[in-house]
């Protein structure tokens, strides 16, 4: 409702503003603006069309796709998915990706949350130093740690292993998650914790029973952001996994693409693979996008 009011007052402002502007400028601006708006909607339309098109192609035969890529499928043919699922090893890869994503994201948040809580509530030289130490990792690109990680994990037999990959994802996600959650915990009101402390709750009890429930929104946000980044992570997985039965989806997709240089293009299967990679993200975005917003504004709005 306040949104409407805001927009209303803004349009009013604009009208008034226009009157004050010289006529020449006024004309130019509205034309430019009109073009901009039209272009923007064009981009939006193309984006949606591209997504729909991609999903549609996944239900068509490779020969049909190549003959006429502009068509929509005449019938729902799951052949591509079946082929990608069985021949392209996407079944195993999807399972691996799902496991890795869920396990590493849950653990990342579970490990980062207490740390962030501590860093946000205790303010001394040590915690300030630690916060800085965690920020440092945000600027380090993955290719820097690629080779040493491979060497290290190889020594302890954790290359080509889903467990190893999970560990790496947790470690690599620490800076961002700690950071996001520290900022979030800082924004939560202290009064409830103080009240709980007066009632004799232990420090851990306050964290567990007061702060965590209050921070649900922020923690959900952090979790979803990790899910998205772990689901799409490619470089580390490509380096650390070697055998087909360990591949995650992006790695399986790359190997599927590369097989085609030898076996001829199977665009139908490839489109099915792309849909398997993209669709979960779309579902999360459509389903949780708004809930996330609400969760965050509830926590941050104060």
């Amino acid at each position: 409702m306040s949104e409407y009011k805001l927009q209303g007052s803004m349009t009013a402002t604009r009208r008034r503003g226009r009157r004050g502007v010289s006529p020449a400028l006024r004309g130019e601006r509205s034309v430019l603006r009109g073009i901009g708006v039209a272009l923007l909607w064009l981009v939006v339309a193309i984006s949606i069309a591209a997504l729909v098109w991609m999903v549609a192609q996944a239900f068509r035969d490779t020969r049909d796709i190549l003959d006429d890529p502009w068509h929509v499928p005449s019938s729902l043919d799951f052949g591509n998915f079946v082929r990608a699922w069985t021949v392209g090893d996407f079944a195993v890869a999807t399972w691996n990706s799902l496991m890795t994503t869920v396990v590493s994201s849950v653990l990342t948040v579970a490990i980062a949350a207490p740390c962030s809580y501590y860093l946000s509530r205790v303010d001394n030289r040590l915690t300030r130093g630690l916060s800085l130490y965690f920020i440092l990792g945000l600027g380090i690109p993955a290719q820097v740690i690629l080779i040493p990680l491979f060497v290290m994990l190889n020594k302890v037999y954790l290359t080509d292993s889903i467990i190893g990959l999970n560990l790496v994802y947790i470690g690599v996600s620490m800076p961002f998650t700690v950071f996001l959650l520290t900022a979030f915990f800082r924004s939560l009101p202290l009064e409830m914790e103080e009240a709980a402390a007066l009632d004799g709750t232990t420090a851990f009890g306050t964290f567990w029973r007061i702060t965590l429930p209050l921070a649900k929104g922020g923690i959900l946000t952090a979790f979803i952001l990790q899910v998205i980044s772990h689901w799409n992570e490619t470089l580390l997985a490509l380096t650390l996994l070697q055998s087909t039965e360990k591949y995650t989806l992006p790695v399986a997709l790359i190997s599927f693409v590369q097989q085609q240089t030898y076996s001829g293009a199977d665009w139908g299967g490839l489109f099915a693979g792309l849909v398997i990679v993209v669709l979960p993200m779309l579902i999360i975005y459509v389903w949780l996008g708004r809930r996330l917003t609400e969760g965050l504004t509830l926590g941050m709005g104060k």
Binding site: I111, Y133, L136, I145
Partner: peptide, 10 residues
């Protein structure tokens, strides 16, 4: 975790 899997490799 962060030190072992991120800073040490860096």
């Amino acid at each position: 975790l962060y030190t072992v899997l991120f800073i040490v490799p860096a």
